[in-house]
Write a protein that binds this DNA or RNA. Structure first.
Length: 222
DNA sequence: ATCCTGGCGC
DNA sequence: GCGCCAGGAT
């Protein structure tokens, strides 16, 4: 039951979103790599910190720990120092523990199976999806609160924000996935950028939105 | 379904 | 200071 039918306007939505992303999408350091460890580091940082700040600390951290093996061998105090300035130090400890687990149990290779990813410390549904989509280029839904808002406004305008609604939205995000992995990577990054740049929580910029003509919400806005 | 966490905006 | 947010955990 992994492929429900795409909602109407799905094709137009994807075409418009991808075209916009190829023009306007942000060029971020962690989008220039497919190294699963590097992607994971960026996602752990992004869980708690805005993009502008992560761009500074991401490079610094990877300079110190360029590989998962290097991180696995590090002393806890050093890892904590490499994380300095980002806060939420529990996540640094989780990342460190994750590195040791992956070294010991998976020969240093970050797993590709969702169930295995989810067992790693600090990895929930969101981060597992991000690794699959952004490192392994798989058509996996990556639904953070920004993306959830985009999908809700575009396709589910009259549904609420409770847990059941979230499930529905994740289903829609899955159904929308392009089959081609490379395109799925772009599509998921594009959803992120739309949520961060246009489909803002408080005041969406519908007039600048590339999918407005096919959006259940924006279509009506003036 | 509900709780927990901790930095940040108000 | 207090409550919010955004994820993970249980």
């Amino acid at each position: 039951m992994t492929t429900p039918k795409p909602p109407c306007h799905a094709l137009a939505f994807k075409r418009r979103l991808l075209a916009w992303f190829r023009r306007e999408g942000r060029d971020l350091p962690w989008r220039r790599t497919r190294d699963p460890y590097h992607v994971l580091v960026s996602e752990f940082m992004l869980q708690q910190t805005q993009v502008a700040r992560v761009t500074q600390y991401y490079g610094r951290f990877l300079n110190r720990y360029p590989t998962i093996k290097a991180l696995a061998k590090a002393r806890p105090k050093a890892v904590r120092e490499a994380w300095d300035g980002l806060g939420y130090y529990r996540r640094a400890a989780n990342l460190h523990s994750l590195a040791k687990t992956v070294e010991r149990d998976y020969g240093g290779k970050i797993p590709t199976r969702p169930a295995e990813l989810r067992r790693l410390p600090g990895v929930g549904a969101y981060t597992a999806g991000a690794v699959l989509a952004f490192a392994y280029e798989q058509p996996a839904a990556v639904v953070d609160t920004n993306v959830e808002r985009v999908i809700r406004r575009a396709f589910h305008t009259r549904c609420a924000t409770d847990a059941a609604a979230s499930r529905k939205i994740t289903e829609t995000a899955s159904a929308l996935q392009p089959k081609c992995g490379r395109t799925a990577w772009e599509f998921n990054q594009a959803l992120m950028d739309l949520g961060a740049m246009i489909c803002l929580a408080r005041s969406p910029r519908c007039l600048q939105c590339p999918v407005r003509p096919v959006c259940k919400t924006g279509r009506r806005t003036k």
